[in-house]
Design a protein around this nucleic acid. Structure first.
Lengths: 231, 231
DNA sequence: CTAATATATGGTCATTTTGACTATAAGTAA
DNA sequence: TTACTTATAGTCAAAATGACCATATATTAG
């Protein structure tokens, strides 16, 4: 056995970056942090950082996201490793990118660690990003568009109880398209994924819609067996 | 600028592993190599090795696969990075896994570099593998099953000219299921992905089938727009 | 109170797609 | 000639889709 480094030692050849999607008022957002120190201080970037010897790559992603933004306990999935030899300016760093979908309303952003700020940006109005982060983001967005059509994800972006129109607007925002209301509902009804909360929307200036929530059991089954969410 | 290592220097925290699928006589195979040196000499493993400072991770995968097995110029896609801190015995190594689909008949296996042997194994009859390679393989197989239903891949596993039954058997082998012959052909016909070679199968002891090849243009379009290969 | 208007929710219908079968054709081998 | 194998074409009821239309229920302006 070699003389191993302390578990907290940073592996300087490997980093993490997270593409976090949020959804609010029919708009698809991306979570960015402003670097408070280091070679990119003052610039906007995907939340990320260094992996240490003692943790798994997955755990590093969770830890970094939480310490930079306050977000915890979310569905965080690996996207891809980005390994161009020149992607990082001063030396050779491979980054493992993750992505997640969250309901913005559930998380107060708390910038911390090396981040001086953390904010949501509309995916259609982003500031310049450091390194190859625009490429990573772009890859993540394409992945999201693809995945949302083949798996019942995307639901993490909504509140626990939501209306069918909210769900439809989410799909429209991700896929950048218009969907037929009636057909959309019929489709959803058929996959028996939604449970009627027997409760109506409040404080809206029009007829209140029924609220629904997800049936976790059906959700898991659909993810396992592979579904086709033809839209 | 720091004093950078020579481009050929190995990054000892990062490796590559490849899950290569082959198809022959209706059987789905995996390509393995026997380690000829190092801590796992004599044992079977996924083809892989170390990344160097000067190359991209993608290039490293191509280089390693070629030097270990002789295979080159194939569709090689990143699968996932495996980053458990204890996956490698002596120190902390993260590996980036790739996968590819090839037509076995097109490649003579030439073990080289650190491999003393290279062989195809039926996916249902594998030897014990080193480290976490069985997990990587398993993940790759699940990925293949999923992907084959949503993208027109899988075609790389066949000869340039093939019969409809060969194509069907490929899908049956990957998905571990039986498909209806007539309905399978109807589906294929509708997506206009196949070009009739106007040429028949030879040397078979029954009625010869028509040979087909892929329409590269339609293929590319389908991959880009996202298709549903409902089977 | 009434009308305008916004969204909710349910239904119609022609067309397309699916899944389960059946039937016939064209080769080889005994 | 017959048995056997695979190729290829077609049928048909059931299910799914896409483009609409109709009505219900709420708020707000006048």
């Amino acid at each position: 056995m070699e003389n191993l480094p302390h578990p907290d030692t940073i592996i300087d050849a490997l980093s993490i970056d997270c593409v976090i999607f949020g959804f609010k008022d029919g708009r698809l957002d991306i979570l960015l942090v402003k670097h408070g120190e280091g070679i990119s201080a003052g610039k906007w970037a995907l939340p990320g950082g260094w992996i240490t010897y003692g943790e798994s790559v997955d755990d590093a992603a969770k830890r970094l996201l939480n310490s930079l933004t306050g977000i915890r306990d979310i569905y965080l999935e690996q996207l891809k490793a980005f390994g161009d030899p020149n992607r990082y300016p001063s030396r050779r760093v491979v980054t493992v990118a993750y992505y997640a979908l969250v309901n913005e309303e559930n998380y107060a952003l708390i910038p911390g660690f090396t981040a001086s700020d953390a904010q949501w940006f509309s995916i259609h109005d982003l500031p310049p990003l450091i390194y190859d982060h625009d490429q990573i983001l772009d890859y993540g967005y394409r992945q999201l568009k693809h995945k949302v059509r083949h798996e019942p994800i995307g639901f993490n972006l909504l509140p626990a109880k939501f209306t069918l129109l909210q769900l439809q607007e989410l799909y429209e925002a991700i896929l950048e398209t218009k969907l037929d209301k009636s057909n959309f509902r019929r489709k959803l009804a058929k996959m028996k994924l939604l449970i009627d909360c027997k409760e109506k929307q409040k404080d809206v200036s029009h007829r209140a819609a029924e609220l629904y929530k997800f049936d976790k059991r059906v959700y898991v089954t659909l993810r396992k067996n592979g579904m086709v969410f033809g839209l």
